[in-house]
Design a protein around this nucleic acid. Sequence first.
DNA 1: TATGAATGAGTGTTCATTCAT
DNA 2: GATGAATGAACACTCATTCAT
Lengths: 208, 208, 208, 208
Amino acid sequence: MRGRARGGRNDAVKQSDEGAGPAAPSRRKDARRNKETLLEAAAAVFVTSGVDAPVRDVASRAGVGLGTLYRHFPTRADLIIAVYRHQVEACAEAGPALLATAATPHSALRQWIDLFVDFLVTKHGLAAVLRSDQAGFGALHDYFLDRLLPVCAELLDSAVTAGEIRADIDALTLMRGVGNLCIGAESDPDYDARRLAGVLVDGLRRPG
Amino acid sequence: MRGRARGGRNDAVKQSDEGAGPAAPSRRKDARRNKETLLEAAAAVFVTSGVDAPVRDVASRAGVGLGTLYRHFPTRADLIIAVYRHQVEACAEAGPALLATAATPHSALRQWIDLFVDFLVTKHGLAAVLRSDQAGFGALHDYFLDRLLPVCAELLDSAVTAGEIRADIDALTLMRGVGNLCIGAESDPDYDARRLAGVLVDGLRRPG
Amino acid sequence: MRGRARGGRNDAVKQSDEGAGPAAPSRRKDARRNKETLLEAAAAVFVTSGVDAPVRDVASRAGVGLGTLYRHFPTRADLIIAVYRHQVEACAEAGPALLATAATPHSALRQWIDLFVDFLVTKHGLAAVLRSDQAGFGALHDYFLDRLLPVCAELLDSAVTAGEIRADIDALTLMRGVGNLCIGAESDPDYDARRLAGVLVDGLRRPG
Amino acid sequence: MRGRARGGRNDAVKQSDEGAGPAAPSRRKDARRNKETLLEAAAAVFVTSGVDAPVRDVASRAGVGLGTLYRHFPTRADLIIAVYRHQVEACAEAGPALLATAATPHSALRQWIDLFVDFLVTKHGLAAVLRSDQAGFGALHDYFLDRLLPVCAELLDSAVTAGEIRADIDALTLMRGVGNLCIGAESDPDYDARRLAGVLVDGLRRPG
DNA sequence: TATGAATGAGTGTTCATTCAT
DNA sequence: GATGAATGAACACTCATTCAT
């Protein structure tokens, strides 16, 4: 982590113009254009250098000024959120769907965790960001939790209710655990985060 | 500012000799004293700021010059190793002991992992250092692996041989997984790394 | 400490554009201003402490931040080049001119070497930088050679062709020799680098 | 150059126990032994890393403490002097001999300069040390001058008296010029310091 | 007398963030 | 609104020199 954050500002992040509601997209065409360019650039840079890449690299790749980047994304977390919003959204939506189609709630949970792992692992360094002590990433942390925690909780609850798994692991702990398991996975082919996550979910099963 | 650090909770770091054999402890009393002071200071700083704390902080807290620190511990990894050597050693030695006393190999593994988790969780930021891509921590990484990997492997093998657990998770993957699970645990009381590690080990059990 | 350096004797460094063509001078007035200030400060510091002076001194004297200096001149060599570009340029252009006006090629060479010596001697420590084994000065070394070597070579060739001088000294050797002769000349009034260089060029004459 | 010298102390260096007179060799056998060991170590280190090598390297190679080195050679210059005293001596003695045997004084001078160049070039970095502005090398500078300058002056004078060469270059200037010509020669096979020095001496010849 | 531990100023370099233009 | 120049704290690391042991 670079973590020289000298003043986090973890605003709410619900009001973006991208997600569900069309919450006031910028009136200026060029501004909207810039935002998209930035998102593409950030995505590219994140692939190459991870989500900890210097912000300047992103601005530079997008061909816009640093100030512009900061205007659109006051925080690195805001940028990461925006870049991965769609995929997070898809992951969130997959929860209920899996619950409806899978053989059992535990199976649904397992498949959903796979999705989650895939998402994290393919995003260089993103997993590390679920760590709570990370300064300046509050917004990102909140966003992840707000969106995915309920989904995970529902899957978990269903499995508990079905008597498939133990009840003493809450969704937050599970998600953070899986998140942690994914750290460093992208850079080491010998480390199989997905399998480990599977083992972890297996471990939730009732002993009996 | 120059006062000798009285060290908040630095137990068990008094003797600085190598693991086996009294490999040439410094002949000079003051040097030995300084090394101890540094170890205490480092332990204290690590508790406060994690193992990534600036080396200067450690030197400063120990009341010695930067050069002195570098003399005794050319690398940050060397410092960390020295600080935690005893505990790592204890953890390593506990492996065979548990194997001998526990009801089953899997039980031994479970208890050993608990030990390992406790060690990592109480050391602010140390867990993160098991990540392989961390530059400049080669010595530390190697030390951990050299010392603990065989222990873990033995426990794992025993459990596999006993038919208790699946065979497709190797010791390195397991250790890295557990290590990852511990990241950030010390700063968040709601995140129960120990329990998660337990779940993970449970997940190793044969499905049947 | 923060006051704008008023620059003791820094003439002729006002325009910072590339050699040929007005290669994109910064659009921002303050940036341009800063670059000039840095050039003046660097020139002043070079006079005082030589071209090996800490970069921090230059930034400090210019009253700008370290980052600003690094932005404009990523390498110390870049800074030196910028400071002396004009004079190097003048020296380079003088070669053909002298060849056209001097009585003989050897005379032209001699006068050109005088120019070269004057340039080096007035720049504290610059001569030492022609040494090839100097790490990190590649850019500077290349610049000098790219610009002045062909000029020297032409003068040399002309004199050889005219039968005035021996042919076994190549331009690079001569330039490095003269460069070396100039080392330390600025700080010792009793050491006459110019005269020595003259003797050297005299020594090139055909024995006959 | 390293040049962090924070307190030069250019004492006289005549009184060493090595040179001509047996000026009070140390009474203690082990001390004498240490001095020799240090000389050998220094010679070896100088070949490898040049005369600017960290003093600690020399002490370490000699297997003695730093303090011992400092006791015997309070200054780096003292060490260099001691290491090369014999060869300097030989060079000094060669002057009159050459004058007696060579065809002409100029020829003697030329041969002597060859000797001098050979000495400097084979000593990694030693040539650079003749520069006058080098802090902390006063003793070395003085020694060289005291011993070799008269020799060079005599050769020069003889040639002047014989009408062979111009009279406006004094011995000091010539020696420093040759010394400078040798800088960097050992590390670049393409740079022929010896030939250049020959050209320089040739250039001293009377124009007529 | 020998040792080598300790000192700490000095240097290059990076980057998040602000704000004048 | 957009730009990107400027800031400067932060950090690791080196080594000449001193002096307690």
